[in-house]
Design a protein around this nucleic acid. Sequence first.
RNA 1: CGGGGUGUAGCGCAGCCUGGUAGCGCAACUGCUUUGGGAGCAGUGGGUCGGGGGUUCGAAUCCCUCCACCCCGACCA
Length: 571
Amino acid sequence: MRTSNFHIITTRETPADAEIVSHQLMLRSGMIRKLTAGIYSWSPLGWRVLKKVERIVREEMDRAGYLEMLMPAVQPAELWKETGRWEDFGDQLLKIHDRAGRDYVFGPTHEEVITDLARNELRSYKQLPVTFYQIQTKFRDEIRPRFGVMRAREFLMKDAYSFHIDEVSLDQTYWEMYDVYSRIFERAGLRFRAVRADSGAIGGSQSHEFHVLAESGEDQIAFSSDSDFAANVELAEAVAPGGEPAAPTEDLRLVDTPDAQTINELVEQFGVPVEKTVKTLIVEATEESGAGFVALLVRGDHSLNEFKAVKLPQVAVPLRFATDEEIRSAVGAGPGSLGPVKLEMPCFIDRSVAVMSDFAAGANQDGKHYFGINWSRDVEMPPQADLRNVIEGDPSPDGTGSIQLARGIEVGHIFQLGTKYSESMNAVVLGEDGKSHVMPMGCYGIGVSRIVAAAIEQNHDDNGICWPEPIAPFQVAILPMNAKKSHRVREAAEQLYSELQEAGVEVILDDRNVRPGVMFNDMELIGIPHRVVIGERGLDQGVLEYRKRTDSENGEVPLQGAAEAILQRLA
RNA sequence: CGGGGUGUAGCGCAGCCUGGUAGCGCAACUGCUUUGGGAGCAGUGGGUCGGGGGUUCGAAUCCCUCCACCCCGACCA
């Protein structure tokens, strides 16, 4: 490709609405253009990268024997009503209707469609197991799309679905898929980590997320310093400290704390160690519990884990914190003065709170706290649960090593669905025993367009993108210096260009009549992994200048056999 | 959805308070010069000032209204 024939539009200035670096660089390099909130066009440059990712995904899925197909993006409402997701999926569903007023959705995912297909096509256990996949545009009407294609409303996804005669077969395909996914992210040149994930309301026995590691990641993942334990913080168990609280050494004291509304203020003003404080969070209770509200207690330096909290049968889903007014009318004091002593509502404590002694908490009277609280003596110990997020240094749940935290961008998710959809849609096959069997299912997703953004988050510097070679739009950039004036430069560039093309290398020749600085900056911004500079200076010495995008120093290759020398440097 | 903010040339912004010929930088186009890290000079094109309504002799500017986009949304107990 020649730049004169390829639409390259770069900008020096960063668009004002781009927050994170991948979004900024995708806009500045001209990879994407926004059409409307959360909806983007991919330019020829961006499309090349997206296709690279897509191709790696497709090749590995094919290699594993999974069957590519294409399902409709537009799906009838009836299917979604059949599984109950017409309501459950909520406002994320883009609902549309045709001229006759019939309802449709623009598919955010395809469990319904594939299960409908499976119940019509699959008859016998002999056809199982089977895994179908597609790479297709999805639409989810996010509350708040942001970060460019990272959290877009319209995006490209690879989704796969497997059907089985029993759970054993499902488990087998699941772990096979785990390996396929690992290969995909390895091949794309990304540093990633597979972590155990919340299986959510769907139930199911197994679920893993694949995260590209990056500082800017929206998800926090926890892993062990000394074992292969890794889990999303949402799921990671905070190990129970065990043992009994220490014997009381202090009396219970009611203290005036007019200026202490927060744990921090309490710690600063009264010198209480933060791990001797407890915070009390009031959340909405389920209707069945009849309680109105539930109090959840975690240590002052810990934070409540929403996903764990809603697993308590008394806590309403989705989790909702009580408003100040609700707290005031239920407790008689405002937030900032809440605690377990003389609290008239169902109460649960985190397991680390259960071993505390001589601690401080609100007194359920405005401007007052109790100090020196001890369980049993001052208040009955409430039931315990794992309610908090793990923090760095916690013991690893598998018993080996301690917890470390990292940030990641979720780019893949695999899931043992079980019979959630096959049951409600009656997808059955005849088994060896001649009886009907509901097929257990797995589903497996990869955010293809998100990978592009995640790759940039992980691989960039001050000058722009540093593509991992497997997904770079071009492998090699040839930059002739002042070609207009120099036959030799022009000829050397043309020759190298055609030799590399002949060798099947994706090479871009910058034949624009622009100053060298412009070429350097553009090619670095766009992130081409290998750069060859051809100038009179080097030609005099029989060499071409070569530099890898991630190197800080220039190297050389001999003019004679330059193409060969560069080929050797490609991954 | 709740809270906050912004809409002026492709991009980044000024002008608005205090109404009176719509500006600056970058980008683009033409010409000349220049050519190893985003060149210089000269010239050119490009605007429903988000839409609608109102006030006024006169509205980018003041008022009303609608729309779009952006940011924040348990961590406070």
